[in-house]
Design a protein around this nucleic acid. Sequence first.
RNA 1: GGAGAGGUGGCCGAGUUGGUUUAAGGCGCACGCUUGGAAAGCGUGUUGAGCCGCAAGGUUCUCGCAGGUUCAAAUCCUGUCCUCUCCGCCA
Length: 432
Amino acid sequence: MLDIQFIRDNQDLIVLKSLQKGYKIDVKELTGCDEKIRKLLGEIEQVRAERNRLSENSKGAKPSEEDIEKGKNLRNRISELETELDPLVKKFDELIKKIPNISLDDVPVGESEADNQVAKTVGEPTKLDFEPKSHGRLGEERGFIDKERAAKVSGARFAYVKGNLVLLQFAIIQFVISVLTDPDILKTIIQDNNLEISDKPFTPILPPALVRTDAYEASARLNAAEMTYKLENDDLWLNASAEHTLCNMYMDEILPESSLPLRYIGFSTSFRREAGTYGKDTEGLLRMHQFDKLEMEVFSDQQTGLNEHKFLIAIQEYLMKKLDLPYHVLMKCTADIGKPNARGVDIEAWFPSENKYRETHTADYMTDYQARRLKTRYKTADGQTKLVHTNDATAFALGRTMATIMENYQTKDGRVKIPEVLRKFMFNMDEI
RNA sequence: GGAGAGGUGGCCGAGUUGGUUUAAGGCGCACGCUUGGAAAGCGUGUUGAGCCGCAAGGUUCUCGCAGGUUCAAAUCCUGUCCUCUCCGCCA
């Protein structure tokens, strides 16, 4: 959510920036509501002050009949005004939640994901001297992926992942953690990208996979209908990303400035309903109801928030380069970055069987938009309380990463070579 | 799942027959006095959020959270979340 003071002062900007994201905002309705609330609140406070004076006068003793009568009147007046106030506050909350975050100036303006811009391309699309197989077919032929039996047990978009492909997943996890916990590697990445930020390593973290409605809503990530599973008997939702239980872990807290940045590398199984995607990506591991993911989450001060965002992207690229996978980086346009984002970047990896790039990573920078409702703040050295800036970014979505490795590293006889850096994490196998 | 206890300010902790508590006392922290310097001592300040105001300042809310009763709620009632102890179950 945005700061109401900022909204009052920048109404035209809000309307314009919202429109660029595809949100038609009636900002006058919000500010009008805000004015009414403030006026009414002023009245209520006056009556309350009167009541407080009354009980102060009685100084512990029982007040006179006359004062009791006065008190009764004041109470009735207060509850009258409050009855008037309640619906206004509800409306205000609804309206202010509708306003998306303001995109940064370097975010391309666009109407759909078709307007995303390729910022850079790294590596050449893999050339194979044979007809490439899709990772789905390859995986089934080799017994790595069994979706038919999974469908019998759990339905479409589930899989049994088996054998050496499982070793590959665990190897990727080990590899990522070995990079993100190594200050020397991080220092190099920071220097190579001219970022002036801390080289503090990431803390590995296993977050809860279930999240309560209030914490989920406060994170501005609850996208109920199309995305998230709700547990009927409890006030709980299934994680659609580790980020959904990482971003809110410091909800209602004030952190010392010296503790920032807080950097986490989380692992979690993610669950998505994928409603409205019937018939799309039905083969292989690209679009599953359940998949494992390594996600980076950073809480920082306001000055370094943008650099942390760039840092996370640099890490994503470092990891992709180490796996020697061809990819390109997309600057997502205003329509595609999402409501809480100020800036968003996708990485798409090359898929030889489809002869195109497919999304494997996202990096989201929320400025203080997410922290405002979460009330995650920090105290500066000179005693000011400020909202943290939050960043999240995929390290690797494991299903999609294995898919692109399988496709780019496949051999003519239907096997898969293992990227050099992963071998030591899988018993030195060079092929599966 | 059953039984019980409890959630108070940065921390500890008092207050629960409703009214000198607009939260005692202590610790910590900050500033000042004192000192050659320090400690001790003394003094002042120290949750967070909003509104009005150029400012000085004023004002409201905040004792897990949400309702309710009352002239008046940390205190009583209801719901809810969380923590702890014991039992049961469980990887």
